[in-house]
Each structure stands twice: as structure tokens, then as C-alpha cells.
């Protein structure tokens, strides 16, 4: 009898599941949204998400629940991106150039095309960061040390085949040196090693120097012009190096998410990005805002992919 009842319940359950979604669909979002960050807490993706959090709640009335899933330079979370229900209630934070470079190497468990990016919201410029007590006062000091002792200068960075890894290879090439790259689970994870002096420097972003002001300083920064918060730090351009680059961060949804929800996510985060108070907070943290909405994403990805593949080939990072 028990079994028959169970069977009946199961059948009834399936019936409802089949015709369920149409009836169940209310206004999106009508419950909290999971926001997965593929890096250790305290890094740029995490800080960005936590800055978005209160504005999301204020504007759209739902909680944005930030959750860290660090590992493999982001690849750990991205390879699971499409295992979540495609209903708009799970968002995954994404990074460029990671999404392009990692699959090129072929060891990670996802392909660039697997990740359904719907919006890119900011950009952080590359920067070489050292701790305050570091003997390297200038970019030239660092290059000289790297030349004198090949492979002894060590760079901490977030992830393998990531923006930081690419930047480190680029440094080696333009400076004509050979250094070692030490991957961490995110910028938040490398801070203690940088401040403790266990690595020579960090290949990171302007945001790290701002977050660790007073304990760390920058030697050079990959922007067009000097940064307003660091007028004393030279750009690579001033040093005679053609290097203006960094990492873009955006949001992806699991594959198969309906077009209206993809658009809704893009619209919501675009609205947050246009909030003056939010813009100010992001700028204070060293983030440069961009507004790549869902309709512009394909062209943007195509253009960036071309650039990254080209750079990576020149650096010898991929064949």
C-alpha cells in the first residue's frame, strides 16, 4: 500500500513539474539570488560583488547572496556554471582574460563558449605591487634585480592562465628577464604572502594597492594616464612600454536561461552601474566602470578574444 501511495505521489508530482513552470512564473526576481564568486574573499570580484549587494537589495527588493567558490584560478566554479538551474537565480561572476586563456591551454573543464556572459561591469588595470619595506623603489630596480638573478624574482598572482599570469609573462618579455610566477586562489589569498615578504612582488591590479594602502605600493600601472589616487606612480607607457591592459569582470548565467531573464539581469546590473553613489564607491576602490550590456556582449567577447589570443601567442603562453 505504501508503495502504491508513493507511486501515486510520484506520478502526481511529475505531472505538476511538467506543467508547473508556466503557472509558477511570477515577477523576476521574487526570491534571493545566489551570486557565485570563483575567487577567495577579499579579491576584486568579491569586493565588486559586495559593493553591488546593497544596491541590488535597494533597487530590486531581493537579497543578492554572495558565495565564494575559489579554486583553479576561477576554473573550478566556471566548470560548474552550467550545472545550476537556468532560472536566473544563480549568477556566476566571470573574468577576462581568464575565460579566454584557460580553455586555450586545454586542461580546465570548460570551454569559453560554455560560459553565457550577460553583462560586463568593470575593469581593473594591471599593476606591479610590492610591500612597503621592499628594496625595489622603482620599476627599474625590479628589472635590474630580475636581470641579475634569473628566476629569483617571484611574482604572486591570482590563478593560472589568468590576467595576472598573462601580465607576468608580458613583463618577462618586455623587460627581457625570467621570473617565477606563484599562483594563489585569488588576490585576497595572496595578500598575506605579499605583506610578509615571501614573494618579491605581486602582479595584480590597482585595486590591491588601494585596499592595502600603507602596507603596499605600486611600481608601475597599466593605464593610459596616471591614476588620480596615485599621482606619483608612473604608467608603463611613461616607462616606454606599450602596456595598457587589465581584467574585465562580468556576470554569467547558466546555459539555457531564457532571453528575458538574461536581459533582466543585464538591465538590473546596468542600473546599479549607473547609480552615482555606486559609481563613486567603485571609483574609490580603483575599479573603472564599463557598461557592456547583453546585446553588446557577443561583439565584445569576439573582440577581446582576438586580442588575448594574440597577446598570449606572442607571450608563448599558448601555442
Amino acid at each position: 500500500m505504501q508503495r502504491r501511495a508513493t507511486l501515486a505521489a510520484l506520478l502526481a508530482g511529475f505531472g505538476l513539474i511538467l506543467c508547473g513552470p508556466a503557472a509558477a512564473q511570477g515577477k523576476y526576481p521574487d526570491k534571493p539570488i545566489r551570486y557565485i564568486i570563483p575567487f577567495a574573499p577579499g579579491g576584486e570580484s568579491d569586493i565588486g560583488a559586495r559593493l553591488q549587494q546593497p544596491y541590488f537589495k535597494k533597487k530590486f527588493g531581493q537579497e543578492l547572496i554572495v558565495e565564494s567558490k575559489p579554486g583553479a584560478g576561477g576554473a573550478l566554479a566556471w566548470s560548474q556554471a552550467n550545472t545550476f538551474p537556468p532560472d536566473g537565480y544563480t549568477l556566476i561572476s566571470t573574468n577576462l582574460p581568464h575565460l579566454v586563456l584557460q580553455p586555450l591551454e586545454g586542461l580546465v573543464q570548460y570551454k569559453t563558449a560554455d560560459i553565457d556572459n550577460v553583462y560586463f561591469y568593470h575593469y581593473t588595470p594591471d599593476a606591479i605591487v610590492v610591500r612597503n619595506e621592499s628594496p625595489f623603489k622603482t620599476y627599474a630596480d625590479l628589472v635590474a634585480a630580475a636581470k641579475a638573478k634569473p628566476n629569483e624574482v617571484t611574482f604572486a598572482g591570482s590563478g593560472t592562465n589568468s590576467a595576472n599570469h598573462l601580465a607576468k609573462e608580458r613583463f618577462d618579455q618586455v623587460a627581457g628577464v625570467s621570473t617565477s610566477y606563484v599562483p594563489f586562489k585569488g588576490t585576497g589569498d595572496l595578500v598575506a604572502s605579499l605583506i610578509g615578504g615571501h614573494v618579491s612582488a605581486a602582479m595584480s591590479y590597482v585595486t590591491l594597492a588601494i585596499a592595502q594602502k600603507g602596507r603596499a605600493r605600486m611600481l608601475a600601472i597599466a593605464t593610459e594616464k596616471r591614476h588620480p589616487q596615485f599621482p606619483e606612480v608612473p604608467t608603463f607607457k611613461e616607462l616606454g612600454i606599450d602596456w595598457v591592459d587589465g581584467a574585465y569582470r562580468g556576470l554569467a548565467v547558466p546555459k539555457g536561461t531564457p532571453a528575458n531573464i538574461r536581459k533582466a539581469v543585464s538591465d538590473m546590473f546596468s542600473e546599479i552601474n549607473n547609480d552615482p553613489e555606486f559609481r563613486q564607491k567603485m571609483a574609490d576602490g580603483g575599479f573603472e566602470l564599463v557598461d557592456i550590456t547583453v546585446d553588446k556582449v557577443p561583439a565584445f567577447m569576439a573582440e577581446r578574444s582576438r586580442v588575448y589570443v594574440d597577446v598570449a601567442k606572442r607571450m608563448g603562453l599558448v601555442k
Binding site: 579554486g71 583553479a72 573543464q109 586562489k185
Partner: peptide, 18 residues
Amino acid sequence: QDVNSGIPRFTFGIPEIQ
């Protein structure tokens, strides 16, 4: 998954322990 390279280890193809 290996923290450095992202290669799955000893997962025996079970997606939930990736």
C-alpha cells in the same frame, strides 16, 4: 579539481565531487 591547474582528480566521473 586541482587548485592550480583545474584538472579533476579521483572524481571517477561523478559530477558532484568535481
